[in-house]
Amino acid sequence: MKKFLNLFFYIIFSISFLPSAFAAEKVEYLTTDWSFKGLFGKFDRAALQRGYHVYTEVCSSCHSMKYLSYRNLAQEGGPEFTEAEAKAIAASFEVTDGPNSDGEMFTRPAKLSDKFVMPYENVKAAQAANGGAYPPDMSVLVKARGGGVDYIYSLLQGYEDPPAGITLDDGVYYNKYMYGNKIKMANQLSDGLIEYSDGTKATVEQMSKDVTTFLMWAAEPHLESRHKMGFKAIVYLIILTILVYFSMKRIWSRIETKV
């Protein structure tokens, strides 16, 4: 048994060393007390709702979220707006639908089943409006960046004046967390930029945290049920393992060899 535990820890150890192999260039990112980390991690509902507020007021003018629908906003494990609220949010956007029976396209207010309205018609239009840089779709952005939430959180607060000796072209900004330190997105957040409906003070740090939480949920909408199910599954497996261990002892006791 002891031998087996050694093997077990050996495996865990060798796996835990693997990810470090991928971290070729390490930058110390800012971090905060993310509520969704850990075995029982859950999203902070209020932060998700505030995060949506930041997204829709600030980010959404350039960044799409093409995999999200308005119904997701009312979904369990998400921002959990009430259905009426989600409907009202959807209705505040215009979408193109059709063709109707006359063969014409028409616009109508969005419904819960509609995808988030995109800021640009296509990638080319987005690039044309942003000095050649395409503002990436934000649906899975957190998972598409090496540093994950910490990276996004840091990036939003990482704008500073370029150090001496670095000259920036027009429309390029210095960000100490960006890969290569040059970013085509200007600093978007400033204290008091928006007004939270729940009275939270909209500092840059607060908005960064809220919108990053929202992006994490957007990328992993089933994170809460994953954590819940994971805990149950692992407890179940541990109990079963213990039972099987004692059965094994019992069965092997019929012959003198130990297991």
């Binding site: 077990f8 495996i11 796996i15 199910m229 994971g230 805990f231 599954a233 497996l237 541990i238 393992t241």
Partner: peptide, 9 residues
């Protein structure tokens, strides 16, 4: 158990 840990966490 190791497998589940990766999948869920």
């Amino acid at each position: 158990i190791v497998f589940a840990f990766f999948v869920f966490y």
